[in-house]
Amino acid sequence: MSNLLEIKNLSYSRNLHSILENFNLEIPQGQIVGLLGANGAGKTTVMRLIAGSFLYRRGTISVQNSQTVAERKSKVSFTEQASHLEMNAPLSKIGDFYNEIYEDFNLTNFKQLLAELGLKIDQKLNQLSKGNYRKFVIAVTLARNVDLYLLDEPFDGIDSMSRKKIIASIISWKPDSATILVSDHHVADIANLLDSVVVIKNKKVIAKEAANTIREELGQDIETYYESYYGEENDD
């Protein structure tokens, strides 16, 4: 299997503060990979760098062999791209907007995703509850047809029914060849979904393992595996 995402020797700092150092990561095509780490470990930063929202000076990031920011952007759909929207607009108008700016956006899929998630097309964005807002973000993100989906804490602060609906959408809408990188600090939420996990700590990837190996060879559940790298210190 070829690697869909390759990050080599990436170093990134902001305001003289080093966030990633010699960060390396390879992710094969078609997998759902959990990006795990404490708050502040750099999960969102890694996603922003992959998506081209942050620029870096040292190292390389390639998505399906594309290294330039413009090419990468066309191959990556990132939940954060659904923020900073006109809050007073109905979801239908936001769908039209996305349809204008992204060639790979599928308006029909977007509407179907909204319906499956229990959202109405005439609802206004600023009137959505937190759980419904998360659902909307997932609908926008999955309605693009790309190689790599970056889902940053998609279940943060929502109830279990919303979480289940979002998980069902991810399973049913992920194209077989597409790859998903999903971050979460409550691993148990998504453990069943993952092909493998990547643990970030101290500016680096400190562990990467297939979910089957963790269970079969280490005899651990994913949460225990993750916590073995963090211990009790990360109680958020």
């Binding site: 997998q31 759902i32 069902a168 399973i171 049913s172 069943n192 979904l193 993952l194 092909d195 089957n212």
Partner: peptide, 17 residues
Amino acid sequence: VRQLAIDLTVNVNTIQR
């Protein structure tokens, strides 16, 4: 495959395996 994945809430790759 995809229906089983949705019913059991697991990844399609896992069902395929």
